[in-house]
Computed example of a mutant assay.
Amino acid sequence: MTEGNTADMIAVKATEVAPRTKPSNYPEPFFSRMSGRVKRQLGDVFGISNFGVNLTRLAPGAESSLLHRHSKQDEFIYILEGSPTLITEDEEIVLAPGYCAGFPAAGIAHQIVNRTDMDVLYLEVGDRTPGDEGSYPKDDLQAVLGPDGKWQFTHKDGTPY
């Protein structure tokens, strides 16, 4: 990887970008469910601030996130390796390398789960629209993207974790 300050980066080998130091922003009891997920924040390396790009690896049995949807953020994934299962509120679809999926804001809730015995590797892209909220249909959790760009999590009744 090219050494230097973020503004000096032009090209890097994606697998050499350091993994995100904190595996999840979720509070417990959800945080530990993300233990088999490793994200490399590729967009941040270049100082990109309007959208995020992550190279995400899921170990066998790992999940990408809780089943969720965003109020304002669009998301897109592209499978590079492995055969993860895309789970929505209505169906499950086994994906393979070359498959992609998109999730418009306020659309269907979704998550990716690795039910195989091999790692899954995929790219995920999402915008960073201010005021975004996350809803989690199967969990007692809601999230609001704060003005500082960090997620603030509460129970569905509004009490903090």
Rank of each mutant, 00 (worst) to 15 (best):
G47F: 00
N114E: 04
F76E: 08
S24H: 06
V113S: 05
H155D: 01
G61M: 07
Q73C: 09
K72C: 09
D148P: 01
M1G: 14
K138R: 12
Y78G: 04
W151A: 09
G43R: 07
R40M: 07
E92T: 15
D119P: 12
Y99N: 15
G61E: 11
V53Q: 03
R128T: 13
E124P: 03
H70Q: 09
Y26M: 02
T85H: 05
D90V: 06
L141K: 05
E81H: 06
E133V: 02
S35D: 15
T21N: 13
N54V: 05
Y136R: 00
A109P: 11
T6L: 14
P27C: 12
E91S: 14
N114L: 04
A101F: 06
Q41S: 12
Q41H: 10
H70F: 08
E124R: 02
Y26K: 03
E133P: 00
R128F: 07
D132K: 07
T85N: 06
P27N: 09
D140N: 14
N54F: 02
D132E: 11
F46L: 04
S135L: 08
R57T: 15
L123S: 09
D74A: 11
S24N: 06
L42V: 13
I112T: 10
P84T: 02
G36N: 08
H70N: 09
D117C: 04
D157P: 04
D132H: 02
L80K: 03
E28R: 02
P97N: 09
R69D: 10
W151T: 00
Q41K: 01
T159K: 12
R57C: 06
Q41T: 07
A143E: 14
D117Q: 10
R69P: 04
V120W: 02
G61P: 12
L95G: 02
V94S: 12
C100N: 13
T129C: 05
L121P: 07
E3F: 08
R57S: 12
T159H: 09
H110K: 05
R128V: 05
V120N: 07
N25V: 13
G102H: 13
T85S: 03
I48W: 00
I112A: 02
H155A: 10
K156P: 06
V53E: 05
M34C: 09
L141T: 06
E75V: 11
C100H: 13
P29W: 02
F30G: 01
G4N: 03
G107W: 02
N50I: 11
P84C: 06
D127W: 05
S65K: 03
N5S: 15
F103T: 10
K22L: 13
L95N: 03
L121I: 11
N25M: 09
V45R: 10
R57H: 03
M34S: 11
L141I: 10
D148S: 08
L86I: 09
R115M: 04
R20M: 13
G43P: 07
F46Y: 14
